[in-house]
Design a protein around this nucleic acid. Structure first.
Lengths: 218, 218
DNA sequence: AATGATTTTTAGATTAATCTAAAAATATAT
DNA sequence: ATATATTTTTAGATTAATCTAAAAATCATT
């Protein structure tokens, strides 16, 4: 049996492991999990004993195949529930995370299979992140940061790098959503802000925002 | 904060308290929770300290108003999720309990409010049990056991006393569901079995079954 | 390569929920 | 009503997950 806490550590290691491709450090996990490093050491030892992670003292951890499978299962559930909350229960994209964090731990294969079908096999969650399929396959979304798009290019918003409620609400207030089309007019070297056009209206977007919006060229 | 375990004990006390109207005994809770009596003693002390239950040594427990409110909240969530599973995800009535036992602990007022609306404010779960409303009000279902109906009476199945998967599957196999209409033809004193007619076909129903089927006269 | 800073681990405690075994209280039955 | 049986509680341990404080290992810098 896998405990809820173990699942959360595995998920944290998975997400941290995607960023840098190195081993995940004890401190990084502690920060993500809001626990102390000593608690992390204990837990990664346990995950290692149970076959979910590879761990050598002072060297950080990595998920094993078995661990990655668990992680992807949780991510799949999380993102399917997010779709459910937005599409069926009228949640906004900044409200879903907290509830999905709970729902992702519900254990029932049939539940997820049926939910997936009920939602018509969605491929992306409300923030544009891909939903792993039943086999754990994840379609990579081709996306670049808005801050990296060249002047004159046209692009469409396909995801967010920061899914905090604050950032998402900011986007709502500025009428930016998944699918919104931009043209890049100008990039200000001084503060790295970006001038864009949305439906013939011009906006200036700070570097901080541009660094957290994923787009694809169109 | 209320823990998951506390919620489960509160729910157990609530359900046991509805049957006999006396205090709920330590052993009864232990049986329901599949724990030992000593664990129950510890927990009811804690529930009492936290204001969820009234407890005096050797005298059993009762929920306080606060405890009953928690219990009814859990029951509401459990039954709404059961409706969701059956109506939206094609679960059968014998499959829902296990999953609803997990879903009932998800904490989000908005989730339940929206789920309720999405399901069109159902009043009964798939087993015929009433769903408490947002204020905790429970419409009492008027129902009697099939074994108590007089010969010659006509009645309609409105609930089950035993919602074990085995019993529900038995009913499925015998084409008995909520809404099924019966006429009582004969009651056999020897084994307390009941002869009934469903849509002009006659059946003999054992006492054990008749004692677990709720009907209303029609 | 030595020293200082940082990270990680270990050692020992704590809390929640459970258990077993023994003691205490209550219930039952002759 | 007294002895026996049952129920309940207490006492003391155990496991999972956490913590603090100290020790050990690794990293970084000159």
């Amino acid at each position: 049996m896998i405990t809820l806490t173990e699942e959360n550590y595995i998920k944290a290691i998975y997400h941290l492991g995607k960023q840098g491709s190195n081993n995940v450090s004890t401190n990084a996990i502690a920060k993500e999990m809001e626990t102390k490093a000593s608690s992390v050491t204990d837990m990664v030892k346990k995950l290692s004993e149970k076959g979910y992670a590879d761990y050598k003292k002072y060297q950080g951890v990595n998920l094993t195949g078995k661990g990655r499978q668990v992680a992807i299962g949780i991510v799949r559930k999380h993102r399917l529930w997010e779709v459910f909350l937005v599409e069926k229960l009228s949640f906004s994209w900044d409200e879903v995370h907290e509830v999905a964090e709970q729902l992702e731990h519900i254990k029932s294969e049939k539940l997820i299979r049926q939910l997936d079908a009920f939602l018509n096999f969605p491929t992306h969650d409300p923030h544009g992140d891909p939903i792993p399929d039943e086999m754990g396959e994840i379609k990579k979304v081709e996306k670049i940061l808005l801050s990296e798009v060249a002047i004159g290019e046209q692009c469409i918003c396909v995801g967010v790098n920061d899914s905090s409620s604050e950032f998402l609400k900011y986007l709502d207030n500025n009428n930016i959503a998944l699918g919104t089309a931009f043209v890049i007019l100008h990039k200000e070297p001084f503060d790295n802000s970006v001038s864009i056009k949305i439906e013939s209206k011009e906006f200036i977007i700070s570097n901080m925002i541009a660094n957290n919006l994923f787009v694809k060229l169109s």
